[in-house]
């Protein structure tokens, strides 16, 4: 009996000690980690605006300043919570807005860039997803993201969608996007997420822009 209690107490003390150590380190570095994830988001948005490209690399530490200097938040609709950005002092109708939705496994988060003038998608980036690596996880590959570029979203197809993800290699119409072979679940989840994100953006945009 005595032995058992000693074992139990030992386990509790050791567990408490290591938990305390880990949470201590976490709280010390939390600020830095939060800053990193903020910079990572800003980087994605700047990339969608074309301010960061493969040939125009910007160091991590300059990103917050560039972000503050070049972009501004846009409030679409009266009380919308949609996170949306525009270039500062720019006449073009390029918007970058956040989207999220249920993927095949986990929620998928990301940003869409659209040209509201010509009603075209300009780019898509995913900030967080839990899709199967090598299959659905390929959504974050440049090759897949490039498939959305310049796709028009103004018209609604007969199946009620603005964009349809079709079997890989079979997209022929401008309102079709190649899906990913072996990741049908992810492809249809992306289709749903992108369509609802576009619908939300359009309905808010029609309500008029107020800064």
């Amino acid at each position: 009996m005595n032995e058992k209690i000693k074992t139990l107490l030992f386990t509790i003390v050791v567990t408490a000690f290591f938990t305390f150590m880990v949470s201590g380190i976490n709280s010390v570095l939390k600020e830095r980690i939060d800053l990193n994830s903020k910079v990572a988001r800003q980087k994605v948005i700047l990339r969608l605006f074309g301010l960061i490209t493969a040939d125009k690399v910007i160091s991590e530490s300059d990103i917050p300043a560039l972000f503050a200097a070049e972009t501004e938040t846009v409030k679409l609709g009266a009380d919308s919570a949609l996170e949306c950005y525009q270039r500062k002092n720019s006449a073009d109708q390029l918007f970058v807005f956040a989207f999220s939705g249920q993927g095949f496994w986990d929620n998928i988060f990301g940003f869409l860039a659209v040209d509201a003038q010509n009603q075209q998608i300009k780019g898509i980036e995913f900030t967080k997803h839990g899709e199967t690596p090598g299959l659905g996880g390929r959504i974050s590959e440049p090759d897949f993201k490039a498939r959305f570029k310049d796709k028009p979203y103004a018209n609604i197809r007969s199946d009620g969608l603005r964009l349809r993800l079709v079997a890989e290699g079979s997209a022929t119409r401008s309102d079709e996007v190649d899906g990913i072979t072996g990741a049908t679940g992810t492809s249809s989840a992306i289709e749903k997420i992108v369509n609802s994100a576009l619908a939300q953006f359009i309905s808010l945009k029609q309500g008029g822009v107020s800064n």
Partner: peptide, 9 residues
């Protein structure tokens, strides 16, 4: 993991 997140994100 915490150190990598903080210094090598």
């Amino acid at each position: 993991k915490i150190v990598l997140d903080a210094f090598l994100p």
